[in-house]
């Protein structure tokens, strides 16, 4: 293992921001894994740190395939992590909306560029991602559909679901999108939590990434099989919106199977405790996203359900 500073930025009042990478193996750039880019993505950094531990063991056992190089970047924006902010501490910009970056541009464009130049050229790219709403996801792998990466490859992660997302304009400046434009087959792995550590999901994410590396011939070791992955278009998941505001109590967990009409959550008046809305699922299926903040506004997406009946929408 080689630990190296990939990009360094001077600060007027703090130590340098040193974006650090861990390299395993030698030869062709096979896979790069990027963890936290936002200050609250603790779980994403944790998954990478555990992956580093696993790869150290594999390297010591000579189980990294010859002529394969693996790069892991656990954390890009630890400046914000250390002061409890999600985005870049100075101007609140999101590094994951600055790709491919620009070396003569604004600070976060330079950070994106500094990172991107070092993670470009890898055959595969994996980003540990978080969602822009508070909530829990079933661990899954996601692909931004640029037409460059074959969706079938996602099955090698062995996660229960693989989601294909049609990019929207604001997605075009993310790492995942730009990796693909620069010909890296890129995926985002969602490991449930963001600002808390969920060991079970972290282990599942680490195993999924190792399983992918094994299936793609980057490591020579057997990883226990995962799920027979189902590939689904994001649009095939039904979004359930809250019809009222108040205190939100969920009645199900991510991964729960639900039948149409089941009570899946409840919203209560925050002052007198009266139930103001019962949230019932409009479809039968599996809950793959669950809002997890205690307070909820009206018209908030509180559940995403992968329907059992996807005859029309199935990918």
């Amino acid at each position: 293992m080689k630990k190296k500073v990939l990009f360094s930025l001077k600060s007027p009042y703090r130590g340098h921001l040193d974006v650090t990478g861990f390299r395993f193996g030698h030869g062709e750039k096979s896979i790069a894994v990027v963890g936290s880019m936002r200050g609250n993505e603790v779980q994403q950094m944790y998954v990478c740190s555990r992956l580093v531990q696993e790869l150290k063991k594999l390297e010591a056992e000579d189980k990294i395939t010859e002529n394969c190089e693996i790069l892991v970047v656990p954390c890009v924006n630890y400046y914000s992590m250390n002061i409890g902010k999600r985005f870049w501490a100075m101007d609140n910009t999101d590094i994951n909306r600055m790709f491919p970056g620009y070396n003569l541009g604004e600070t976060t464009q330079r950070i994106a560029d500094g990172l991107f130049t070092k993670i470009q050229g890898y055959k595969y790219g994996v980003q540990l991602a978080s969602f822009y709403q508070p909530g829990n996801f079933m661990p899954h792998v996601r692909l931004m559909d640029t037409g460059f990466t074959e969706t079938e490859i996602m099955k090698d992660f062995g996660l229960q679901y693989a989601i294909v997302r049609r990019p929207r304009p604001y997605d075009t400046t993310t790492l995942n999108y730009n990796w693909q434009i620069w010909e890296t087959k890129a995926f985002s792995v969602y490991a449930n939590a963001t600002d808390t550590i969920d060991d079970k999901s972290a282990e599942e994410a680490v195993l999924a990434i190792l399983r992918f590396m094994s299936a793609r011939g980057i490591i020579n070791t057997h990883i226990r099989p995962g799920y027979c992955t189902e590939i689904i278009r994001e649009s095939a998941a039904v979004q359930v919106q809250s019809e009222a505001a108040g205190i939100f109590r969920s009645a199900v967990n991510v991964g729960s199977n639900v039948e149409r009409g089941d009570l899946i959550g409840r919203i209560m008046n925050p002052f007198d405790g009266e139930t103001v809305s019962e949230i019932r699922t409009p479809v039968s299926g599996v809950v793959y996203f669950e809002y997890n903040a205690p307070l909820i506004n009206e018209k908030t997406v509180c559940y995403k359900i992968i329907t059992n009946d996807r005859t029309e929408k199935k990918f």
Partner: peptide
């Protein structure tokens, strides 16, 4: 408009 969580409307 939309109801906010605690006793307020956006």
């Amino acid at each position: 408009s939309a109801d906010l969580a605690v006793n307020e409307k956006l």
